[in-house]
C-alpha cells in the first residue's frame, strides 16, 4: 500500500526571485549577444576600437550560447556562473581598451561601468542559486512500491488471459520466427 505523505508548501521567496532573476539575465544575454553579433561594426566604431570587431562578434556568440543555456536548463546555476566568467573577460577587454589611445575613453568607461553593474547582478544571482542548491537533497527510495501482490518475476504474464484487440495486433510477419502461431492465424510466408 502506498504511504501518503502530507506536506506543506515550502518554496521561499528568495528561491523564486533567484530563478526569476536568472531568467531575466538569460534573456538579457540573448538580446546583448544578438546586438554584438549583428551590430559589431557599429559597436566597435562607437567605442573607437575598430580593429576589435571580430572579438565583439565572438563575445556576442558567447552571450547567445549562455542565454540559451540559462533559459533551457531547469537548474541554470552553472550557466549563470558562466556569465560571471564572461563578465570578467568583458571587463578585462574594456580595461585594455582604456589604455588604447585610439579608443573613445569616455564611452569605454561608460561601457565598463555598465558591465560592472551587470556583473554585480550576475554574482548575486549565481550565489543565490548556489546557496539553494547547497541545501542537502533528501533521498527518496521507493523500492518497496511495486503495486503487485507478489515479486515481479512471479507476476510476469499474470494478465496473459487478456486478448489483444484485432486493431492493435502486430502483423504476423513481424512476430518472432519459429514461435507457435496463434490459432486461426496464417503462417508467415517464409
Amino acid at each position: 500500500m502506498a504511504r501518503h505523505r502530507q506536506m506543506q508548501s515550502y518554496k521561499t521567496r528568495s528561491q523564486g526571485s533567484a530563478e526569476t532573476l536568472a531568467r531575466g539575465l538569460g534573456w538579457f544575454s540573448l538580446v546583448l549577444g544578438a546586438a554584438e553579433l549583428f551590430g559589431a561594426k557599429s559597436m566597435a566604431s562607437w567605442l573607437g576600437v575598430e580593429r576589435q570587431e571580430g572579438l565583439i562578434r565572438a563575445y556576442g556568440a558567447r552571450e547567445v550560447a549562455t542565454g540559451i543555456g540559462i533559459l533551457s536548463q531547469r537548474d541554470p546555476t552553472a550557466w549563470v556562473w558562466g556569465r560571471v566568467a564572461g563578465d570578467a573577460l568583458d571587463l578585462a577587454t574594456l580595461g585594455n581598451a582604456l589604455r588604447d589611445r585610439h579608443a573613445h575613453h569616455d564611452r569605454v568607461a561608460l561601457a565598463f561601468g555598465a558591465v560592472a553593474g551587470v556583473t554585480v547582478l550576475d554574482v548575486v544571482c549565481a550565489n543565490a542559486l548556489t546557496g539553494q542548491n547547497a541545501q542537502p537533497a533528501r533521498r527518496f527510495d521507493y523500492s518497496d512500491r511495486s503495486g503487485l501482490p507478489r515479486p515481479p518475476n512471479q507476476m510476469r504474464g499474470a494478465a496473459r488471459d487478456f486478448e489483444v484487440p484485432r486493431d492493435m495486433r502486430i502483423p504476423d510477419a513481424l512476430r518472432p520466427y519459429r514461435q507457435p502461431q496463434r490459432i486461426g492465424r496464417p503462417q508467415p510466408s517464409m
Partner: peptide
C-alpha cells in the same frame, strides 16, 4: 492483481 495506489507520493488539500 495490481494496486495502482503504489504511485502516489503526495496527498494534499486542493488549496495546496
Amino acid at each position: 492483481q495490481i494496486d495502482p495506489s503504489f504511485v502516489i507520493t503526495h496527498t494534499v488539500a486542493l488549496e495546496e
